[in-house]
Design a protein around this nucleic acid. Structure first.
Lengths: 136, 136
DNA sequence: CTCATTGCAAACGGTTTGCACTGGT
DNA sequence: ACCAGTGCAAACCGTTTGCAATGAG
């Protein structure tokens, strides 16, 4: 699995397992807290180094969500996120929905958008209703 | 211009002028450096407070670009950014290109995407060419 | 004259780094 | 046995905050 020259350490396995078990993306701190349960001696520095390593290896995907923090998830199907900026609720969107837009970008600007995660911010249905009933 | 209860201070005017003069979005530090030239006593804390204030007032727009830092620009026409993750080159995209996608999001998920800035990462034409000629 | 706003300096939180030790290979 | 990887603790950087002084209204 891990290519030659790199070592398969318990720390890396634990962190991979945490990310695989999580249904959504996790912040480094969230990863640390969960991983520490399975490996009490683990430090935050190792979590940061490991997340960077796994991202470079393409096993994990890093994404910017609101509040500037990077979050991580197991690399898998291409998808993007819709995040409600009121309640924080998160929704996955299949990459297919954006494919046409990316094609348009390429034609008009020459830019080749990567498979890299894109995050959209807005209001989910519930928070729209609340905004309306609150008078604004 | 500024609504009742809020004061028009020299600091705010200088920062507005810096943002208006800039052709692209600026980080808080970049704003600070430019504004300090016109007003030597200015502090970073004031820049942060002022940028937040101006954003709340809708005079300035905050956006997440790569590296998790918030950047600011004068609020004006609705647009988005294409950023080359190799050379950092930035391109503006009219909001119209995304309007149809946002409509689709609304229908399928209920999410109402705000006018809030979206940033896409990819490779500009030049960096694509370099990648090819570099063998990868 | 009042109170929003500022400067100052300290605190903060997330992330990175140097270094000696440990443990995968 | 070697060196990639780790723990530890300190440094770092961008950002926020408490407080007293200032100045816009």
């Amino acid at each position: 699995m891990h290519a030659r020259g790199f070592r398969v350490t318990p720390q890396r396995m634990v962190i991979m397992r945490v990310l695989r078990k999580a249904d959504i993306h996790l912040s480094p701190t969230a990863v640390y807290q969960r991983a520490r349960d399975a490996m009490p001696g683990l430090t935050e520095a190792t979590v940061y180094r490991t997340l960077n390593f796994l991202t470079e290896q393409g096993l994990v995907l890093a994404a910017h969500i609101g509040s500037g923090q990077l979050v991580y998830e197991i690399a898998g199907h291409a998808h993007h996120h819709l995040i409600c900026r009121a309640c924080g609720h998160t929704l996955e969107i299949e990459h297919e929905l954006l494919a046409e837009l990316y094609r348009l970008f390429k034609v008009r600007t020459g830019y080749q958008i990567d498979r890299v995660h894109t995050t959209f911010f807005g209001l989910c249905m519930e928070c729209q209703d609340q905004a309306v009933s609150a008078g604004n």
